[in-house]
Amino acid sequence: MQIFDSFLLEAVINGILLGGILALLALGLNLIFGVIDVVWICYAELIMIGMYSVYYAHNVYHWPLALAFLACVLLVAALGALLHVLVIRPVLGAEPINQLLVTGGVLFFLQAVATLAFGVEFKNVGVSLPALQIAGMYISFARLIAFGVALGGMVALYLFLKRTYIGTAIRAISQDRGIMPLMGVSPNRIFVLTSAIGGALAGLAACLLVLQYDIHPAIGLSFGPITFMVCVLGGLGNMVGGFIAAFIFAQFISVGGYFLALEWGYVLAFLFFIGMMFWRPQGILGGK
């Protein structure tokens, strides 16, 4: 009896690596929700724009890859701040659901702009990284890097929130939006800053994803919904919960995809999500 089928193990390990990326995606969304109380439905579209920026900087203007990555993170951070100032701020006082929907409009807009500017052809940065061969298993080097950087990014964000003055202000706002202005913290500046950080995390994710996937205007749809599920499963705004949920989801997709077809992995993950909502609607780590 062979329990440790090496292909299954490979699927599990790939799942863990995928979990790192999902955790990073969920982190930015959770940060924004926790502080501003808004869900960016268009989060994955920001990542798509970031991926295109890497492609254009590196392949068209021949910047070094590191510089292209830096530009991508800065660009998407700026987009995040812009999104808040232009779109979110005017509806902050409106019905909560309008805030969700307005970013849905941005989703359509960004997709269309990308189609207009970049065309519908698939693009690839063409940086191919070798696959590591360990004990008969192939582990994608790009995924390993992505996993490492995602974890590093999370630790950096954690330290930023815990150790710096601004970080403390951000955490304070997320706990009580009403009282902080009385303490002399301007919520407005904190909101813009948080949006920029959320954008920077999306930019970072874009740098990691661009190494593994082709770029096209609709790519956001292939990992946008799964990111929302991860956040809700972990408890919206709960970063640790999102982290755990990311790895659970990734295992469903990877191992489910191993036993069945890839789509069935996603179907299982979504069904699991819907089931979990009925058991723990407040998220796996949320209090009753």
């Binding site: 919206l236 996603y266 979504f270 819907i274 909502m277």
Partner: peptide
């Protein structure tokens, strides 16, 4: 279980994705 607002929107979003993925699968 009083799933309302954002949560309701996102749970139903998952449902529509499930149907789409099942059709494709």
């Amino acid at each position: 279980f009083k799933i309302v607002g954002h949560y309701f929107a996102l749970v139903t979003l998952a449902l529509s994705e499930v149907v789409r993925l099942i059709i494709i699968a």
